[in-house]
């Protein structure tokens, strides 16, 4: 009895030692040399692995930072400037601050503004729908409403509004990682700068059709009339391919264009409500 126990313990111990040696040798043989700073950088990253920086994940981003030693081309949109400062400290280099951004949906083709002309009956994915045809409304440029952007968002910052059939961005949750921008097959979503209190002015339409055609498809389409460009005192608005675009780096939020737009395609959001509404 005692001998059995002793033998058992002895064999198991021996086995343990042998295996430990094997494991050590294997680990030593297949050891991959990696810059230890990659680990250090990874530690200060948010760890969301969202891919918003354009890399496959946080580790890939850390690797990219270490390899290029260039923080102008590597930016973590989730962690923002705070994180980038920490990364810079780890690597011992300088970093410039970037303005905070937010995703903006540039289509206002709600069911009311843009009536349906046919019914889509395939898989509810914008990519599948876009590959098939121009969409179930008269506008071949607008939102397809299947929510690929919602599915792409890792932060729960986009949801479909059931009344309008359009996605809405929660600007507090949005990290401007750009996943939705890449997911949208119609390129409707754009990252724009996050002004104080979230105020911004933008053209909520990307329809490149001629004015009459665009207007027929959607009540609130940009018809490319150019009135906004004329009235803009800062030269921030350009009209190309029958659609206006407001350069957010030049826009000073004066809202002159908003009043000028004949179709109401230019939106001004998050401005304080004036007590005496001007008529």
């Amino acid at each position: 009895m005692t001998t059995t126990i002793i033998w058992t313990i002895a064999i198991l111990t021996l086995l343990g030692v042998v295996l430990a040696v094997v494991l050590y040798l294997v680990a030593a043989k297949f050891r991959v040399e990696e810059d230890s700073r990659i680990d250090d950088v990874e530690k200060v990253l948010p760890g969301a692995n969202c891919g918003g920086c354009g890399n496959a994940g946080c580790r890939a981003f850390a690797k990219s930072c270490v390899e290029t030693m260039d923080l102008d081309r590597n930016f973590c949109p989730v962690g923002g400037n705070g994180t980038m400062k920490k990364v810079a400290a780890v690597l011992g280099i300088e970093v410039r601050e970037k303005a905070p951004m937010v995703a903006v949906v540039r289509c206002n083709g709600s069911c009311e503004n843009r009536p349906k002309v046919n019914d889509y009956g395939g898989y509810a994915s914008c990519r599948v729908k876009a590959a098939l045809y121009s969409g179930d409304t008269g506008c071949p440029f607008g939102c397809l409403g299947c929510g690929d952007c919602v599915a792409a968002c890792q932060f729960g910052a986009i949801r479909m509004n059931p009344d309008t059939g359009l996605p809405e961005v929660d600007q507090d949750k949005c990290t401007a990682c750009g996943a939705c921008v890449r997911a949208c097959p119609k390129n409707i979503i754009e990252l724009r700068n996050k002004c104080p209190r979230g105020m911004r002015v933008f053209v909520s339409c990307v329809n490149k059709d001629k004015g009459a055609v665009a207007r027929k498809a959607c009540k609130v389409a940009c018809i490319g009339c150019g009135k906004c460009a004329k009235v803009c005192p800062h030269g921030a608005i350009t009209v190309e391919d029958n659609v206006a675009y407001i350069d957010f780096t030049k826009c000073k939020l004066c809202k002159k264009c908003v009043a000028e737009c004949p179709t109401g395609a230019i939106h001004a959001v998050n401005f304080p409500v004036l007590k005496n509404k001007e008529e």
């Binding site: 395939g122 898989y123 994915s125 990519r127 599948v128 590959a131």
Partner: peptide, 12 residues
């Protein structure tokens, strides 16, 4: 399951 819908886009 919309097999081909999904496969067609991925094939592209």
């Amino acid at each position: 399951i919309p097999l081909l819908d999904v496969i067609r886009v991925a094939k592209g």
